[in-house]
Simulated scan of single mutants.
Amino acid sequence: MNTSPAHRDSVLRIDCHGDALVGLLSEPVTTSGSASAAAGASPAAGTGVLLIVGGPQYRVGSHRQFTLLGRALAAAGVPCLRIDYRGMGDAQGAQRDFEQVDADIAAAIDAWQREHPSLERVVLWGLCDAASAALLYVHRRRDPRVAGLCLANPWVRTATSLARAQVKHYYLERLRQPSFWRKLLSGRVGPGAVRELLGKLAQGRATAAPARAGTAGPGAHATDTRHYTEQMADGLRRFGGPVLLILSGKDVCANEFLDRCRDGGPAWHGLLSRPGLRREDLPDADHTFSTAAWRAHVERLTAAFVRGVPAA
């Protein structure tokens, strides 16, 4: 029995404006006895997955989800690079948020191509605000090397959107439960809980206002000062490659994203039905796909998606 690993890991050092980033590259081992060879799983030549990590987080991920995803992709024949962007994990530099990592993403692709000239295309993979960062990147940079997007539970959070999602997907459900009314009438639901409900209802009815302006990095859209969610919508609408959208059924962020697609105004109208978008719902999954079954499902979806990304 051949027990050789189906992947190999190596460190890729990345320079981003003088700051050192750390990347972990998982690559297929394509010997005749490897799992990837046995499965015949080979994506389009020259395609890899750049896994962007949202913050505050680093390249291993909650319950090692990013380490396991990268290795699973490599075992399926898909090379995967996981990075810490500046200020996170082992990377140098000042801490920043997802709106400010365009340069980090570009630097990672540059370094990967220098070390592996056969890499021609990348698929950006992100969970939560890393999915948002991927959309902001394709909106601002229009990088022709980005051939596909995998977006898991994208972040579109504002105070109003959170209140609306909580009212719609939690509080209204509680109001439908007889046990809630029995507790309320018996005094077991305190006045604080009632005030919280009324506050959420009022906040959810408020008109959504931009929380802050976008902070684009250098590139074609460096002067775009619209709210980041509007820039995300533009990125999704204008991106020319295929998109895999993975949504968890038991996740407030996913519910907020769906609400934004339905009620977010003209910028978001029709985006869920845009050509090239494939939506996959995991009805029982939580935000980080924390069980082995959910994780494996995401791994299979991603590998199949990448194999279908066309060459330029």
Rank of each mutant, 00 (worst) to 15 (best):
N2E: 14
T3M: 12
S4K: 11
R8C: 05
H17L: 14
G23K: 06
G23S: 09
L25N: 01
P28D: 04
S34M: 11
S34D: 06
S36N: 10
A39R: 13
A41P: 08
S42Y: 10
S42D: 06
G46S: 10
T47C: 06
L50P: 00
L51H: 02
P56M: 10
R59C: 09
G61K: 04
F66Y: 15
L68I: 06
G70P: 13
A72H: 06
A72W: 06
A72R: 09
A74N: 11
G77E: 00
G77Q: 05
V78C: 04
C80T: 04
D90Y: 01
D90E: 15
G93C: 12
Q95K: 01
R96S: 14
R96T: 15
F98Q: 00
Q100F: 03
V101W: 00
A103K: 02
D104C: 12
A107F: 05
A108Y: 00
A108Q: 03
H116W: 07
P117H: 07
P117N: 09
P117V: 07
S118E: 15
R121A: 05
R121F: 04
R121K: 08
V122N: 01
L124A: 03
L124Q: 05
W125T: 00
D129I: 09
A131G: 09
L135T: 04
Y137N: 08
Y137H: 15
P144S: 11
P144E: 13
G148Q: 03
C150S: 04
C150R: 00
A152L: 15
N153T: 12
N153R: 10
V156L: 07
V156T: 08
R157Q: 14
R164S: 13
R164K: 13
K168W: 04
Y171F: 13
E173N: 09
P178R: 13
S179W: 07
S179E: 15
F180L: 15
L184C: 08
S186W: 06
R188Q: 15
P191S: 13
V194Y: 03
R195I: 03
L198H: 05
G199E: 13
G199A: 13
A202M: 09
G204H: 06
A206N: 04
R212H: 14
A213G: 11
A216T: 03
G217L: 09
P218V: 12
H221M: 14
T225C: 06
T225Y: 03
T225L: 14
M232D: 00
A233V: 06
D234C: 08
L236Y: 01
R238F: 05
G241M: 12
L244H: 00
L244F: 07
L245H: 02
L247I: 08
S248Q: 04
D251P: 06
D251H: 04
A254L: 12
E256M: 15
D259K: 00
D263Q: 08
G265A: 12
A267D: 15
L271R: 08
S273H: 10
R278Q: 14
D281M: 14
A285R: 02
F289Q: 08
T291W: 03
A293N: 03
R295D: 05
A296R: 10
V298W: 10
L301N: 00
T302D: 14
R307N: 10
A311Y: 00
A312F: 03
